[in-house]
Design a protein around this nucleic acid. Sequence first.
DNA 1: CAGGATCCGATTGGATACTG
DNA 2: CAGTATCCAATCGGATCCTG
Lengths: 137, 137
Amino acid sequence: MPEPRDGIASLATEMARHGIDRDAPVRSVMALLGDRWTTLILLVLETGEWRHAELKRVLATLSAEQAISQRVLTLKLRALERDGFVARFVTHDVPPKVSYRLTGLGLALQGQARQTIEWIKANGAAIEAARVHFDGL
Amino acid sequence: MPEPRDGIASLATEMARHGIDRDAPVRSVMALLGDRWTTLILLVLETGEWRHAELKRVLATLSAEQAISQRVLTLKLRALERDGFVARFVTHDVPPKVSYRLTGLGLALQGQARQTIEWIKANGAAIEAARVHFDGL
DNA sequence: CAGGATCCGATTGGATACTG
DNA sequence: CAGTATCCAATCGGATCCTG
């Protein structure tokens, strides 16, 4: 294992110790936040408890493109539930009523996501300027 | 456009005004941070200026799985460069020497990413416990 | 050495139809 | 209504080969 530069060795051992990779949740949660819908779902669930269908409808109004498919919404909610970010409530009526809301952990995660999103929005002009410059080369 | 719940209307108009979706950089930058390699690349570039090959080698030591392919490394560096997060330097020798480092904007982005990653690491045990609970149902 | 071109497998997300 | 199953297109990432 080469050590190409000063400082990177300690960095690597730090990462190994704290598990930034090696299937710690870091990779998968970052991927979740980076996917097509999760940040929007978190944003909506931050406002309270939502039924599946209602959530699907409001997400459609929040996205410029097409609506989320029922299948993908279920997939994303499951992923968030599995990681403990979202709690799921069911009444065993016919038809069943299912609702979702953030857990404390999910609310904290959304706080993190919101910070990053706010930063990107605040620097959006600079980013888009860089893109125009790069594309016009 | 229905308004299923109090507060979501102002949320939607806020998002439309500030462009949380609608191809503002928010979506694409979040996706970049969520992909297989970008956060690791930012982490390494935070330590200084790196040649392409050296960067590829150190990334291999930082990831538990396989090494990054040359093609994908170039792709990710281009994406970061296009958004103004990474600067690229070339000497027109034979063979050429190409190096990369973070811009001020990229350093700020890495600050954001680091915060989120630290949060995930700090809550990694809770997340993994939630997974065990969910999977054992 | 850096990176482009090509080919490929794996994953992601959307559309639709069906079930309790 | 919520969820699952199936099918499909698009995207992502890896492997290999080739060039200045």
